[in-house]
Design a binder for these strands. Structure first.
Length: 298
DNA sequence: AAGAAGTCCTGGGCGC
DNA sequence: TGCGCCCAGGACTTCT
């Protein structure tokens, strides 16, 4: 489940090894992973990589020709760089969980680069995709996405007007809606609600100004911290060097059902909410609006 | 028109 | 040990 921190971690680990490299040959083992016109991907050959960017959970490999390769890892996608000698870029030190044995049966595409190294695209569940676009198309494409929560432009006013479109929805649904805020997934949405002490089923219109500010602050704080910890690995997530993330040990609710809340020792609950599971503390995440609070005025 | 539900996909965990 | 069932979830599509 690569969310914003995981995709950002992949970007940061791949950037130094991919910048300036040319694609020599692209092997596609699972044709359906190429969205749009599959034959287009051949055009990658001999194109030089001039940038690695990210928008929401989408990784963008910018090419000198004016095209961009968009990659969405969805749930189990991995993008791992392997050196010419077949070794991971470990800097001489073993990486925990870095033994990936590439290529393996989950390898759906291999990008051979001009220095003899290769970029392996793995995906167990086959939901991830690649798509080739022209740079100029991206802006229009990304207008469907909400604000980037780690940019300075993501102010409280921006957040407030974004959620105001969804007053009748449950808080967690809104946090997961990529057109409201771009980059949160199930793990960090649960963590944000816990930090802000908001029950995942609380309706947006019942949130007080203070509660909304608490959610806003938690989004920025938690995502920044998760990027610093190089993302969360439950099973599949690996960074661009094949290493696991270090954020799991810091999660307070996700994956902790049946364990005591770090604040009040009440057991963390896992509950079906729509088609997702929500993890929360039934005691310190309030389902009803505190008496002292007003409603969100917009 | 917003919101809910169905869809894709496979490994792993569970009960029996 | 083995079989079958169910679950995990991002984002798109389809339905109400």
């Amino acid at each position: 489940m690569p969310e914003l921190p995981e995709v950002e971690t992949v970007r940061r680990t791949l950037r130094p090894v991919l910048l300036g490299r040319r694609f020599e040959k692209v092997e596609v083992r699972l044709p359906k992973l190429i969205r749009g016109s599959p034959l287009e991907i051949v055009k990658l050959n001999h194109d030089r990589i001039c940038g690695l960017e990210r928008r929401a959970k989408i990784l963008i490999i910018r090419l000198e020709s004016g095209r961009s390769l968009l990659i969405h890892l969805k749930m189990t996608g991995q993008l791992i760089h392997v050196q010419r000698d077949g070794k991971l870029l470990t800097g001489g030190h073993p990486i925990p969980g870095g033994e990936v044995g590439l290529p393996n049966r989950t390898t759906q595409a291999i990008f051979h680069l001009d220095d003899g190294s290769a970029l392996f695209f793995n995906d167990v569940r086959k939901f991830a995709y690649l798509r080739l676009h022209h740079h100029r198309e991206l802006q229009a494409l990304f207008t469907l996405l909400g604000p980037e929560p780690l940019l300075p432009s993501f102010t409280f006013a921006v957040f407030r007007s974004a959620v105001a479109r969804r007053l009748k929805s449950q808080t967690k649904d809104v946090l997961l809606d990529q057109s409201v805020i771009a980059g949160l997934g199930n793990i960090y949405a649960d963590e944000v609600n816990f930090a802000a002490r908001i029950h995942p089923r609380r309706l947006v219109r019942s949130l007080s100004e203070e509660e909304l500010r608490a959610i806003y602050g938690a989004i920025k704080r938690i995502l920044r911290f998760a990027v610093q910890k190089r993302g969360t690995t439950f099973r599949h997530f690996r960074d661009g060097r094949g290493a696991q993330g270090g954020m799991r040990a810091y999660l307070k609710v996700y994956g902790r059902s049946g364990q005591p809340c770090v604040r009040c020792k009440t057991l963390i609950v896992r509950e079906k909410l729509g088609s997702r599971s929500a993890h929360y503390c039934p005691r310190c995440q309030t389902l009803t609006k505190p008496k002292w609070a007003g409603t969100l005025s917009v």
